[in-house]
Design a protein around this nucleic acid. Structure first.
Length: 857
RNA sequence: GCCUGGGUGGCGAAAUCGGUAGACGCGCCAGACUCAAAAUCUGGUAUGGGCAACCAUGUGAGAGUUCGAGUCUCUCCCCAGGCACCA
């Protein structure tokens, strides 16, 4: 899947970097013999951290941690191009958070890994003419080098590679646990088939009828597939959202995706043997035992149901179709079946449909209504049948207009009555009309009353439906974990016993998918054929691999347990470290990855494997990084190569710059010339430290320091990095004001607060300021002394009639009268007050005085 | 169409509860240093007027509430992202 990933592969080689690269920056003419050399500082401290084990846990340390903080970021898809600047943006923010909590005294576990299976990798390998078995390890090596160079606080002792048998063994184990728990089923189902990728796609991977990978039109095919029954968890996935600390946007996206609709199912009895599509014929035909069940969110409009519509695939259609309508109905069903998903899902296309020849009885009023088919009714939602209320539903109105079906008003909006004509569907609130005993009720009351009355006759019941669909995990491809199931003629599908895991992915020279509908794995005879684990008879393996979202759906559970090769999840470590304290990633994964991860955690909790059911206590989405107002991508030629900018400026400057761009949770515009700001800041800080003296902090500087500590301490854990950095810059400006020489006590807290953003230079400066032991090993986040933030005097604005006319400085402790007196004594203010009467005076302490004058003519 | 965000100088952006709009940084202008340039340092920089003190205007548009609105209310426009025939 490729977390935080943004390349597209359908593009030409990267153009040469654009012309606006700043010339190599010389550092300041040294005021001391040594100037800031980022490359030397960074190499030194990366080696030092590794030597000391500063960022890594031993297994024992993981077990013994006193104050665990699990700081997670979405693991990357290791592309051949290397780390994307968007990855760095995401990871730096997450790393700043981790380093901050470490300085706050937490035991911070910050692992990283690689999400390297999947169609994405496979397609790239196919295009590049490489075998993923060789390509991926190269990519991972390159990513590892880049990530280390960027100075993230990663625990390289606890990393995962989803393509390693050590990992996917346990991915298969998760599959088997869910299978044993009854949460997986194999069924023949219409699936989205991408004719270009030659594979089945999950509903989520079909974007507006197109394959999300290659934009080909998706077709329908019937194949036996493995499904995870995520819909069983729809209600819980929805209800739990209230209790988790996630970005509001992400919660909303999940809520919409689950798509809860409250309504009722209502049964309509079919009338006996109609012949010929003469509408309204044989009005006295008796009801039969056959009933059509519909789902509606508007039972209040039942009296306005003037016809019924079934999905073309509805199983009752053959039985309902009368002889004279048969040809027309079959032609319509064929046409719909041939239609690709793009066509079918176009919301704005004209309504089509056909009459079955049958009628059914509206249970509220006994009126006989015709039964139609139309492709705007979907078989996989609700009951696949709807009662059509053209007066109060936009789609039904369109359909009724197109086919000249009756339209009735049963809700009167404000100013309407039962007779007000309908020029379009009225979907607003109002009072029920032409609804018999229910006339006059509001929409909400009408819903309740009508369902109750029908329920009493056994014809309706309240019901909730969800838009969420089951998760199809089968992929007819090569590059993924094989599904650990053996198919036996007599025993059927048999799970591979746990002790036989992993089912290794065989090395395939030619892994090109074909259009046989089965995976290339079927071509490996000695892998394909295997005895049935149950009866020993000759059998064969399932040739599909699992969806990459399964690999990424549980990796965060594995990190603490990577030292265990005998079990997926060490119970003690899992209890200690999970759920994740902080998860930071792109909101493009708001729906798929995060939903699947939540589902898997819930399922494993129900299977007694986990004792919590939400994996991420806190999730924050970072914004998208763009450049010059456009998305960064290879095809647009506005790629930023991390290696180049790190060579040029050093990791610290780039980190600081990325975090300074703008609010971390919003779209950020990368404009490379701006990098001079953070670079200059670090250089000036370096100089200040180089010449710093001992001594007591100046009172004014100390006040500025404590105000800065206060602000930065609030903003860093809130991920408000840009303003936190601005505050530190402002403080350094105070320290350096007018050629002033700083003293060490003024600089040490600044260096510590800067450390999460620019860890290497911070370590170096901390040492140069005379502190032993290493910043991240021994320093603590500075504490703010509120008393020291108080100013002796403040500048307040003086307004006359709400317009600022002067600014006056008053003692901070001045009372209202003193402030007003000071305000009035200002010459400019006096000009406005001259002769006029002050009608009202408003004093906002520490801010302003507003004097409102009497009316002037 | 619906749901989220967002719209503030030349640019990236700041602005607790409604209380000095534009912090911080880039860029630009001027000066210092330099033979010169780069780098660095100092000062200036919303727009219009004025030598200046100041004055007027100004947070997508329009109205409203208020002593006071970037912030609250209403109507509307635009941009980005997500969902989209879900009954």
């Amino acid at each position: 899947m490729g977390f935080g990933f943004d390349f597209d592969y359908h593009s030409e080689p990267a153009p040469a970097a654009s012309g606006r690269i700043p010339k190599t920056l010389e550092t300041a003419r040294p005021m001391t013999s040594e100037r800031y050399d980022p490359q030397a500082v960074e190499a030194k401290w990366q080696a030092e951290w590794e030597r000391r084990g500063t960022n890594t846990f031993t297994e024992a340390a993981l077990r013994d941690a006193r104050d665990p903080y699990y700081n997670l970021m979405m693991f990357p898809y290791p592309s051949a191009e290397g780390l994307h600047i968007g990855n760095l943006y995401a990871y730096t923010g997450a790393d700043v958070n981790g380093r901050y909590w470490r300085l706050m005294g937490k035991d911070v576990f910050e692992p990283i890994g690689f999400d390297a299976f999947g169609i994405h990798s496979e397609n790239y390998a196919l295009k590049a003419g490489r075998n993923p078995n060789e390509l991926i390890p190269e990519n991972i090596a390159n990513f590892t080098r880049q990530l280390k160079r960027f100075g993230g606080m990663y625990d390289w002792n606890h990393t995962v590679d989803s393509t390693s048998p050590d990992y996917y063994k346990w991915t298969q184990w998760v599959f088997l646990k869910l299978l044993a728990g009854g949460l997986v089923e194999r069924r023949l189902a219409p699936v989205n088939w991408c004719p270009s990728c030659k594979t089945v796609l999950a509903n989520e991977q079909v974007v507006a009828g197109l394959c999300e990978r290659c934009d080909a039109s998706v077709e329908q095919r019937e194949l036996p597939q493995w499904f995870f029954k995520i819909t069983d968890y729809a209600a819980r996935l929805l209800d739990n959202i209230d209790g988790i600390d996630w970005s509001a946007v992400t919660k909303k996206a999940q809520t919409n995706w689950i798509g809860r609709s409250e309504g009722a199912e209502v049964d309509f009895a079919v009338t006996a043997g109609e012949e010929a599509g003469v509408r309204g014929a044989n009005a006295n035909a008796p009801a039969t035992q056959v009933r059509i069940r519909v789902f509606t969110t508007r039972p209040d409009t039942l009296f306005g149901a003037t016809y019924m519509v079934l999905a073309p695939e509805h199983p009752l259609v053959p039985a309902l179709t009368t002889a004279s309508q048969r040809r027309e109905v079959e032609a319509y069903r064929d046409a719909v079946a041939r239609q690709d998903v793009v066509e079918r899902q176009k919301a704005d296309k004209a309504k089509t449909g056909v009459f079955t020849g049958s009628f059914c009885i509206n249970p509220v009023n006994g009126v006989k209504i015709p039964v139609w088919l139309a492709d705007y009714v979907l078989m996989d939602y609700g009951t696949g049948a709807v009662m059509a209320v053209p007066g109060h539903d936009v789609r039904d109105f369109e359909f009724a207009t197109a086919f000249d079906l009756p339209i009735a008003r049963v809700v009167a909006g404000p100013g309407d009555d039962a007779g007000t004509p309908l020029a379009e569907a009225f979907v607003g609130d109002g009072a029920l009309v032409r609804s018999g005993q229910f006339d006059g009720l509001s929409v909400a009351d009408g819903k309740r009353a009508i369902v109750e009355s029908l329920a009493a006759r056994g014809l309706a019941k309240p019901r909730v439906h969800y838009r969420l669909h089951d998760w199809c995990v089968s992929r007819q491809r090569y590059w993924g974990p094989p599904i650990p199931v053996v198919h036996c003629q007599s025993c059927g599908p048999v799970p591979v016993p746990e002790q036989d895991l992993p089912v290794e992915l065989p090395y395939l020279e030619d892994f090109q998918p074909d259009d046989s509908g089965v995976s290339p794995l079927a071509r490996v005879a000695d892998w394909y054929r295997t005895p049935c684990p149950k009866c020993g008879a000759p059998a064969h393996r399932d040739t599909d691999v699992t969806d990459n979202f399964l690999c990424s759906g549980w990796y965060y559970l594995r990190y603490p347990s990577t030292d265990r090769d005998d079990m997926a999840l060490d119970p003690q470590l899992t209890r200690k470290w999970l759920p994740v304290d902080s998860y930071i990633g792109g909101n493009e994964h708001a729906v798929l990855h995060l939903m699947y991860a939540r589902f898997l955690t819930m399922a494993l909790a129900d299977l007694q494997i986990l004792d919590f059911d939400e994996p991420f206590a806190k999730f924050r989405a970072h914004g998208l990084l763009i450049r010059d107002g456009r998305k960064i991508s290879k095809s647009r030629g506005n790629l930023i190569l991390p290696d180049r900018i790190v060579d040029e400026f050093g990791a610290d400057t780039v980190r600081l710059y990325l975090m300074f761009l703008g609010p971390y949770d919003q779209v950020a515009d990368y404009q490379e010339h701006g990098i001079r700001g953070p670079h200059g800041f670090l250089s000036r800080l370096w100089q200040s430290v180089a010449v710093a003296e001992d001594g007591e902090p100046d009172a004014g500087v100390e006040r500025a320091l404590h105000r800065t500590i206060k602000q930065v301490s609030e903003q860093v854990p809130a991920l408000q990095f840009n303003t936190a950095i601005a505050a530190m810059m402002e403080y350094l400006n105070v320290v350096r004001a007018k050629g002033r020489t700083a003293n060490r006590a003024e600089l040490t807290p600044l260096v510590v607060m800067l450390a999460p953003f620019a860890p290497h230079i911070a370590e170096e400066l901390y040492q140069r300021l005379g502190h032993a032991g290493g910043l991240f090993d021994s320093a603590r986040w500075p504490a703010c002394d509120e008393a020291k933030t108080v100013e002796a005097s403040t500048e307040i604005a003086v307004q006359v009639n709400g317009k600022v006319r002067a600014r006056v400085v008053v003692p901070a402790a001045a009372d209202e009268q003193a402030v007003i007196a000071a305000a009035k004594s200002n010459d400019n203010v006096a000009r406005y007050l001259n002769g006029a009467q002050v009608r009202k005076t408003i004093v906002v302490p520490g801010r302003l005085v507003n004097m409102v004058l009497g009316k002037q003519e």
